[in-house]
Nucleic acid binder design. Sequence first.
DNA 1: CATTGTGCTGAAAACGTTTTTATGCTAATT
DNA 2: AATTAGCATAAAAACGTTTTCAGCACAATG
Lengths: 337, 337
Amino acid sequence: MGKVTIKDVAREAGVSISTVSNALNDVDVLNPETKSHVLEVAKRLNYVPNLNGKLLKSGTTKMLGFFTTSVAGPYFYTLVESMSRECDRLGYGLNVFVTTDKQIIMSNILGGRVDGVVIFEELRIDDQDIAAMEKNKVKAVFLDRVIRSEGMGSVIFDSYEAGYEATRYLISLGHRKIAYISGVDTMFDSVQRKEGYLAALREAQFPVDEDYILQGYFEEEGSYNAVKSFIHNHPGKLPDAFLAGNDLSAIGCIRALKSLGYDVPNDISVVGFDDIDIAQYFSPPLTTVRNQIARQGMLVVNHLVRMIQNKEQGKVEKLAGELIVRGSSHIKLSRPS
Amino acid sequence: MGKVTIKDVAREAGVSISTVSNALNDVDVLNPETKSHVLEVAKRLNYVPNLNGKLLKSGTTKMLGFFTTSVAGPYFYTLVESMSRECDRLGYGLNVFVTTDKQIIMSNILGGRVDGVVIFEELRIDDQDIAAMEKNKVKAVFLDRVIRSEGMGSVIFDSYEAGYEATRYLISLGHRKIAYISGVDTMFDSVQRKEGYLAALREAQFPVDEDYILQGYFEEEGSYNAVKSFIHNHPGKLPDAFLAGNDLSAIGCIRALKSLGYDVPNDISVVGFDDIDIAQYFSPPLTTVRNQIARQGMLVVNHLVRMIQNKEQGKVEKLAGELIVRGSSHIKLSRPS
DNA sequence: CATTGTGCTGAAAACGTTTTTATGCTAATT
DNA sequence: AATTAGCATAAAAACGTTTTCAGCACAATG
């Protein structure tokens, strides 16, 4: 009553195991009668090939791995959803590993359990790991991180451009004192958005005041606290607008402003990034730069599969954001004095 | 420059492959010097064991599989997040398969790539599949679906109880004409909620009017349309309250009511299920029955691992919901006539 | 009639591990 | 001195497949 193997099928059908294998894998060399007989027996015995044996021999898994620290939140699920859809379309399975354990990550990446991997940048895979991956000829595509290696590709959201455009938009509304609520400084996205913001300020020849750069850690709570304490500690430096590192930060920011009696957008404009699904339900609905997450997921899988199948080289693909104007931003009114 | 195998390490270190294996797996039988020498060589060669070979032999993977049709939305990501956290804690990896391809599903479940599986009920695994799983002694836990088989367990949200409690709550507010917006009739949850609703009505000795049961398909759009056309087609049968099959349906319902000029909750109360994160941000904030998703994820993994490690039998674990009262429900006021 | 080709099937090797068993050596026991 | 015990290592079997190659029967060719 243990697992039924190819041997059992062979014995039961009165043929050799190679014949069974050929029948199951549609190798066109068998007598049709033999083949159908074998298939019939296999079905009757409820035979399912053991994948480990299969893979060990063939070396290919038709599986892609996605390694990430988390799947929580709209960004991730949209990404995973679109990646798996594209995988399905291309005849691959998607395998999501949610872990921070470096050991597990590397042994799965290098251990030959998947044909290629997608790696989310926050997993800080270091140069040594990358060297090991190169040595083993692992096909990899990084999300939001640029790797200079021919075996590896990247698909990144152009956060610099997004930060730049969002800031220019706020300037076009007449705002001058624009504060930035930063995310996590070790993350590529966060840094790039800030750089874009700074570039737009410089271009408009506005002074850059370091005080106007707050730390919100990409979280609602962090942003809420940062805004409150900033306004408390810097009376007379009230900004015209806040550019928040992501939508959650924007929500935290708006809540803080409301709690202090300010009106968004009439007193102060707030703009976020990502366009998570809460954005449109929030009150006021959020103006934000949409990150085309689904498209990113599709591209990343597509690129990886091309690398695997056509031996294509890895390259860097950039994705532009899209400004979605909603209710949280408003043209600057001169205050009734 | 191909992959480096245990043989390469053995040759390089001048020992046999069994010695290498023993050194790597901490089998306490080797001369410490030999062991450290082997480890040193392995490290130098960047050796990583091939998982397929390893699994083929040992038969255990320390991996759990989660099979689902989708990971989109707050329900799923909360679930996956909590499952992977619990897996980490117990020394397992979690492997998420997002697919609807029955072939892929069954070959992965039965193919020995994971030690146990969690199956989301919407994948309609039929009796034949289950028989095959039983035959192969697959350890499985189903989410929101009850399987009567000793090898398999279930962790379910007690939707019947939730439907019952929510309805009683609405009755306690003074509502009499309570409509139900049904989900998908093939889903266990959906049916159970409706049964609970009906039971509460019967208990209160209210007449059950089939007209009051709409089809919203668990979607915002579906619910929106259902409510609009119901009110249009049944003048004079305006309900006091709507019990929606899930929060998205509740949101669709409220939008429909608003668009027709009704006020929620003053004219009509609306209650949903799940407490997705949008619920508290919506206006009005949703009264809903919270599904303790994170706890469900934890329990399901825990149960599965106990089944694997302690040969425990599968059983059915029920999780109670929790009524969260917010702004979308209100005590019934007699209309000014 | 002897050779060559063809169509089908079986035997055996291979994939990379772990695990069981065998071997050679030294030290301890009789 | 001969057996035994114990230790460290090597050899070989096993896991479940796929794939390569050999073999056999029979038909086709010269």
